[in-house]
Design a protein around this nucleic acid. Structure first.
Lengths: 220, 220
DNA sequence: TTAGCCGTGATTGAATCCAATCACAACAGT
DNA sequence: ACTGTTGTGATTGGATTCAATCACGGCTAA
């Protein structure tokens, strides 16, 4: 009969979730200092659960902690970001392979709708949101124990730079992204895991090379 | 003039390191309950840094925390372990590729000595130690920002089951492991990254299939 | 003018104390 | 005999408090 969800034992996780969201939406840019007392005050808690939240986000790579000094929103160099894309290029196809036989036709229809919506999206934030949802929706059918979390973590860590790149350099004329998305949906619909893997790996690879061509995204 | 290394700000990390070691050596088996006060007393600290240490190990996957209930050494099911091996199969070859052009001849000589020593090792713990050192030594030349840590984390999480498998089923007559190790050294020496990737992926894959053939390792 | 030094303030790290939660066992009812 | 319930003890979660550390300013001296 406890209508109140037990707020005991989840304070750290709740604070972590809100801070994570603030970082992903761009509210807190990389390099921003995070003061423990600020967070504590903002959430009406003490500094102790705040430190737990910071530990969690540090483990996710979103926050960088320095002993006796403080916490900052993590920054990435171009080299680090390329490394993450190369990891994605290897493991996302594997995760996709797990999903291909498990997705329902309705799942695939929804995927195709997302790909269509992206083609019509003019605004940056909407584009980013749809792109993220499209790709992560390719991975929700398989119940993996850690691969799904790993992939989502890689998306989270690179989120800010994807936004910066899109804002600065996205050319409306570039159709190949949408083309690849539709190729991917088509391969999934045919349940052709090998082809789906190839298309996805190529898609990520092309994105990485495109990003590497614009190192100014990572300056400061 | 501080001869004392600043013990401030590192208590959690130190406790985490010792607990990690205790888990990896098999001193604490999966499923073992970890009481915060025990750890605190054993390390002469309060429960607060212990909780930080547990958070760190939880992030590494070595410890499982349940709110308001306690902490246990993480267990793996066969399916989870297979998933980790499949991830390793994809990302370790990538990490190896980064290393192949950077390893010195001396590095490669040391690697070959390790492979030789493994062939002569009769005792399980020594075999495990040499095997771990052999593989991780393939990855120390490249300074990656996170790929190296990911791989090490996967080795750590599966360490206990590698030990259990080796204890129960290792047949002295199986030469293919050593054969593959020497093939790997040879490919590295020729700086043939493609071949090295292939050999390593096959090696991990073969190990996974072998493991899947003995599900009793994961019972209890 | 500039480089090095030192003191102060701000911020984090850790210990103790109290409250909330859960596991377990004894008990009562069927 | 078995199942559902309730109470107690053990254990974890969080707040407050104090100690250690670091960043940053002004100051002195070359």
């Amino acid at each position: 009969m406890t209508l109140e969800p037990p707020t005991h034992g989840a304070a750290g996780a709740r604070i972590a979730a809100e801070l994570r969201e603030a970082i992903l939406t761009g509210e807190h840019a990389p390099g921003t200092r995070i003061r423990q007392e600020d967070l504590a005050g903002r959430h009406g808690a003490s500094r102790l659960p705040v430190r737990e939240a910071l530990r969690m986000l540090e483990a996710e790579g979103l926050v960088t902690l320095v002993a006796n000094t403080g916490a900052w929103v993590s920054s990435l160099s171009l080299a680090e970001c390329e490394e993450m894309y190369q990891i994605r290029e290897r493991i996302e196809p594997l995760l996709l392979r797990f999903n291909v036989p498990l997705m329902s036709e309705a799942d695939i229809d929804a995927l195709e709708l997302l790909a269509d919506a992206m083609e019509r999206s003019g605004e940056v934030e909407q584009f980013l949101r749809l792109d993220r949802e499209f790709h992560l929706s390719c991975y929700t059918a398989a119940e993996t124990s850690m691969l799904g979390d790993m992939v989502q973590g890689l998306w989270n860590r690179t989120q800010h730079y994807r936004r910066a790149f899109t804002r600065m350099f996205r050319s409306e004329g570039d159709r190949s992204v949408h083309h690849e998305h539709h190729l991917l949906v088509s391969a999934i619909r045919r349940r052709d895991a090998d082809e789906a893997e190839r298309v996805l790996a190529g898609h990520i690879r092309r994105t990485r090379l495109e990003l590497a061509r614009h190192p100014t995204v990572f300056e400061n």
